[in-house]
Simulated assay, not measured.
Amino acid sequence: MLREFIAATVFGTMMIAGAQAADLGGQVLKIGSDTTYPPMETVDEKTGEIVGFDVDIMDAICAKINCKAEFVTTAWDGIFAALVQGEFDVVMSGVSITDERKKTMDFSDPYLVVSQAILLRVEDEGTSLDAFQNGSKTLAAQTGTTNAQLAEKLVTRDNTRLYDTFAAAILALQNADVDGVIIDGTSAHAYEQEFAGELTAAIKGLESDPLGIVFQKGSPMVDAFNEGLEQIKADGTWDALVAKYWGVEN
C-alpha cells in the first residue's frame, strides 16, 4: 500500500478564495536535479529525456503559475552550492527539508513526505533491523543525504558505506559488498520492481522526511510555487500523479 512509502500529504485541499493568481510570465526556469533516483527523476534510456514524479509535479505547477521547467542533470555532490551560486533557479531532486539546509536555502511547502526503508538482497529478506543495529552488518547510502545520516545513526559511521550515487550503492548491494541500502521508500519500491526477485524493501517505515522544492535564499518565487502546489492538490492533479507512479490514489 502507498502508506508504506508515503507517510502523509502535508498541504491543504482548499483554494484561497479570491486570491490573486501567481504568474511568472512564462519564465523558463533551470531546475538542477540528480537524475539517478527513480521514480523521482531519471533519464529515459530510449528518449534521453529526464522523466519522473518530480518532473511531472514541476510541470503541473508551472502550468498553474505560468513558467516552464528545464531540468538539468547535475551530480548530487555540489548541487546546493551550484544553486547558491546561481547556476540553477531551482533544485528539485527528492530533497529532504532539514533545519540545516534551511540556513542557506529556502524551501517550498512539502510536496511529499516519504518514509525511509532498507533494501536487501532477496535471500536476506528475513534480516531484522536489530541485526543491523547490533553492529554486525553494513549499510550503504548516497553521500550527503538524510539517508546517510540515518544509516550512521543505525549502524555507526564505521559500518556505513557512502557512494556518490544510489545506483553505485545498489550495485554494491548486488555484489554483496554491503548488507543493505537505506533509501526513501518511494525509490526503494522502484528498485524492488526493477530488480524483482533480486532485491526487496524488507525493512520499511523508518524515519520520515518531507520533500521540498529548493530555492536560493530570499527567492521571490517561493510563494508562487506554494500557490501552485495548493492548486494541483485541490484539482486532483497530485492524486493522479501519485496513482501514476505508485498505482494507488491517496
Rank of each mutant, 00 (worst) to 15 (best):
E192Q: 15
D184A: 14
Q174N: 09
G205F: 00
Q174Y: 03
F225V: 11
T200P: 04
A176R: 13
A234E: 06
M221V: 00
G212T: 11
P210V: 15
Y163E: 01
M221R: 12
G197E: 11
Q193V: 14
T156G: 07
E207Y: 05
D184P: 14
L171T: 10
V155I: 13
K217H: 09
L171H: 01
E230D: 09
V214W: 12
T165E: 02
V155A: 08
T237Q: 12
Q231L: 08
E198R: 15
L206F: 08
G212W: 11
A172Q: 03
T160Y: 07
G197H: 12
A190G: 14
I232G: 02
P220R: 00
D179I: 06
D158T: 13
A168Q: 08
N159V: 06
Q174F: 08
V155S: 05
S187M: 15
I213L: 14
F166D: 04
W238A: 07
N175K: 14
A172F: 05
S187K: 09
V181P: 04
R157S: 06
D177E: 14
T237R: 11
H189S: 12
I232W: 00
T160P: 00
A188Q: 08
L171A: 11
S219C: 07
F225H: 12
A190Q: 14
I213P: 04
R157W: 03
